[in-house]
Structures are given as structure tokens and as C-alpha cells.
Amino acid sequence: MRHLLPHPLLSLTLTLLWLLLVNQLSAGHVVLGALLGWLIPFATSAFWLEQVRIRHPLTLLHYFGILILDIVHGSFHVAYLILRGPARLRPVFVEVPLALKTHLAISLLANTISLTPGTVSVLLSGDRRSLIVHALDTGDSDALVGKIKQRYEAPLKWIFEEGSD
């Protein structure tokens, strides 16, 4: 089974992507998409170092729901800050210590931080223990770190890593 279908999740994603790309749902395209989804993982197997394991798919969906709301909220916030003018911004760099270990979870956290209110992830330290984040306007950097850890990092850790080590 593992030899025939090395990355089931990737195959499914590729099939869905193909259907979105051709923008129609016909039997022929489903078959073609499934074929591509089956073949491409073989051709690119050298690039997939670690197998992605989603331990709690429902929590992941919930996480994406929160993420979308936060993206909308974050954009309104940034728009307000931009319109208010540069003079009253309080930009600051903060360091967020990481509890996550897997590459995928860290990447997701960094991307989440960049998309949500007033923060952009800037630099991952060489040992992958901490992430430096630039905040556009913050009075209390400790509260910001706490919020990132509790709102985004904790669910990611639960989804991808809990029980793995």
C-alpha cells in the first residue's frame, strides 16, 4: 500500500487542484486528475522528506476558520493603522520562543503570523528555537507573544505533533 500510494494526502490535494484548474467536474477530468495525483508524487518523491501526519483533522478545520476571521480582522486593523498615519505607530521586534519541532508546523505558524494582525515573521533562528516577529503597532510585546503562543501555536502543536514524541 505504501509503495503504491506513497503520499495519499498529496495525491488527493493534487486531484482537487487539477479539478479547480480545469474548472469543471466531469468523469474524464476526475480520472485524469486522479492519474496525475497518483503519478506526480512518484516523480517528485525525492523532495518529500517527511510524511505529513494530521492527527486532528477537525481541529485543523477549526484552525483555518479562526485563521480566515483573523485575516479579515487583521487587514482591517492594518488598514486603519495605515490610514491613521505613520507618526503614531509603535513598531517593535519581538522574539517568540518555539515549542514546535516539525518543519511543516513551523512554516504554518510563520505564515499565520504574517497574515494576522500587524505582525510579520522575520527570522527563524539557526537552531529553530525561536522566531523573530516584527509588529506594526504594539504597546505590550509580552502580551503579543502570549497571544501568538496561545492562539496559534498551541492548536498547531496539537494538530501536528501531540503524541509524536
Binding site: I71, I82, L89, P91, S114, L115, G118, V122, H134
Partner: peptide, 21 residues
């Protein structure tokens, strides 16, 4: 935001969030 803000790191916020949304 890209045109108005004063340093690179703050300018980065406008295009990443507002423009994307």
C-alpha cells in the same frame, strides 16, 4: 501603506495583509 510609511519593516505590512485580502 507602501508609499506612506517610514521604514521598510512597517511598509512590509501593507502589501502582505491589506493587498492580499
Amino acid at each position: 501603506g507602501l508609499a506612506r510609511l517610514r521604514d521598510f519593516y512597517t511598509r512590509l505590512h501593507g502589501p502582505t495583509k491589506a493587498t492580499t485580502l
